[in-house]
Design a protein around this nucleic acid. Structure first.
Lengths: 153, 153
DNA sequence: GTCCTATCGTCAATAGGGTTGTCTATTCCT
DNA sequence: AGGAATAGACAACCCTATTGACGATAGGAC
């Protein structure tokens, strides 16, 4: 057994992740979003059509304080706006701006493009199997995305 | 086309990486290395039998300053020692201690164990193909491992 | 032998993403 | 009315990383 050293697998998985994410952001930078970084995309996804810092923190598996800082940054970059919830004075709702929605649309398209390129490189059948096998191995843990720091592009 | 949204793939890859690394470190903690964190393991690998901060930085794709800080941390944790190079007064060589070598041996074994568990879960043929496909997609980029922060276990 | 240049380690400032703990304001349920 | 739960803000801190500058050393050209 152990035909291959076991440490290669995590390295390959990480490299795959970084390859997709870095390439997406390289292209995104050329499409009017040079400041967008991976954490921003994930946070935008977590915001959806509108969410509070606490919501975002819960969805991303980080503290509400960390989420609040990220939202603050997104406001600075013009990706979201924040307004008090008229129905609950404790809450502040972050909502994507048109610029933010543009970023989200474009990154979704880029992810699709890169997936298509991977399908071309190894064949659709291989990619489908890779996707299915990974989904089986990690289950729903794939969508609890914390630990994204350092991916600073 | 685009039967699946493209953003799932990077998430699955990241989740796979985290799954392996986190599980390794959970088990490592129970084997006398509660302080070991992912970045340390990678740095230890980069040190090998002995290396300078600059070497480590180059191998890991980070600045020499960042590498020096990590080595400093490894010294604090008792994983390496540092001595001046007798042949070159500019250089300081970091060398794994017995504790450090123990950590490396154990984590290598744990990576192998987890790889075996994955093979059991999806079948050896599937795992081999996953490994081969990823290797083909990312090439040698797998072993330029930066961006490890946040993986703080 | 003596310079010029490249390299090593280090110091300092900065950035970004994360944490815990504490606090006030507000809401909601009893 | 009053107590528990919740949202956001503030502070202090950690970790990993960055760039820029600097003194000390090594080593090749001459």
């Amino acid at each position: 057994m152990a035909a291959r050293p076991g440490f290669e697998l995590p390295l390959l998985l990480l490299a795959g992740f970084r390859e997709i994410v870095d390439e997406t952001h390289r292209r995104l930078a050329a499409l009017g979003h040079p400041e967008a970084r991976p954490a921003h995309g994930f946070a935008m996804q977590a915001i959806g059509v509108g969410a509070t810092a606490t919501d975002v923190g819960r969805r991303l598996g980080v503290s509400k304080q960390a989420a609040a800082k990220t939202i603050e940054r997104l406001v600075e970059l013009g990706y979201v706006t924040q307004e008090p919830d008229p129905a609950d004075a404790r809450r502040k709702i972050a909502t994507p701006t048109e610029h933010g929605r543009d970023m989200l649309r474009r990154s979704a398209a880029l992810f699709d493009d890169i997936q298509a390129e991977w399908a071309e490189a190894i064949g659709v059948a291989h990619l489908d199997r890779l996707h299915a096998d990974l989904a089986r191995l990690v289950g729903d843990r794939a969508f609890q995305i914390d630990g994204l720091s350092g991916l600073t592009d």
